[in-house]
């Protein structure tokens, strides 16, 4: 593992192994909570916390966890952190907790987190697992905020962040973007753009 650098592992999570676009994991929260930038930040923050906790514990215990029972153990480790963040958010950020609804407890079954535990933390040292958690968490954050920004901007005509109006554009708000259909369309368009870029790069290389 000599060729692994901290920065390399970090950026790999954002670009090459981006959880949503490259690995197509964790779609449910990606689409459900991105009606606004604020929700997107809250969700990716919660996911980052859980990912950090689970990656750290899993990689620290990777030699003790018997391979045959690893999945249930991963789930219990993840569940512990989900319960923590669930209680913390309920106590300190009630409006956000209300907005995210059942998607906080549903982080337990978010494939990103269990996928990283299985594919990365179970095989790598604690240090790199933490870096990987930050990288994947950042990748998730970027996608969520991008989708949230597009939907909020087109759907309401402005982006409001923690009571602060950031941008407003003079358009008639298209309510469609806030509705579920808008979420599917946004991710479809973004994915097509990512694919287009990939194909163009591949053609250039060939």
């Amino acid at each position: 593992m000599a060729d692994m650098t901290i920065a390399g592992e970090f950026f790999r999570g954002i670009v090459k192994d981006n959880p949503v676009f490259a690995l197509v994991l964790g779609l449910c929260p990606t689409l459900a909570v991105t009606t606004s930038v604020e929700n997107a930040i809250g969700m990716s923050g919660a996911a980052l916390f859980v990912l950090l906790g689970s990656n750290t514990i899993v990689s620290a215990l990777r030699k003790q966890i018997p391979p045959i029972t690893r999945i249930p153990m991963f789930i219990i480790i993840i569940c512990t952190f989900v319960t923590i963040i669930d209680m913390v958010m309920e106590a300190y950020t009630p409006p956000l907790y209300e907005a995210l609804g059942i998607f906080i407890p549903l982080i337990v079954v978010n494939c990103i987190i269990i996928g990283r535990a299985e594919a990365y933390a179970n095989r790598n040292t604690v240090k790199f697992s933490i870096v990987d958690a930050f990288g994947i968490g950042a990748g998730f954050f970027v996608v969520l905020v991008a989708i949230g920004a597009i939907r909020e901007l087109l759907g309401t005509g402005e982006i409001v962040l923690f009571g602060l109006k950031l941008i407003s554009i003079p358009i008639t708000p298209a309510t469609f973007m806030i509705l579920p259909g808008g979420a599917f369309m946004t991710i479809g368009v973004l994915m097509a753009m990512v694919n287009y870029n990939k194909i163009r790069k591949a053609k250039k290389g060939a």
Binding site: V24, G182, F184, M185, A192, N195, I199
Partner: peptide
């Protein structure tokens, strides 16, 4: 570029 997942998402829309 639209083949596969993006296409599926457009149908879902």
């Amino acid at each position: 570029a639209v083949e596969g997942l993006p296409h599926a998402f457009f149908i879902t829309t």
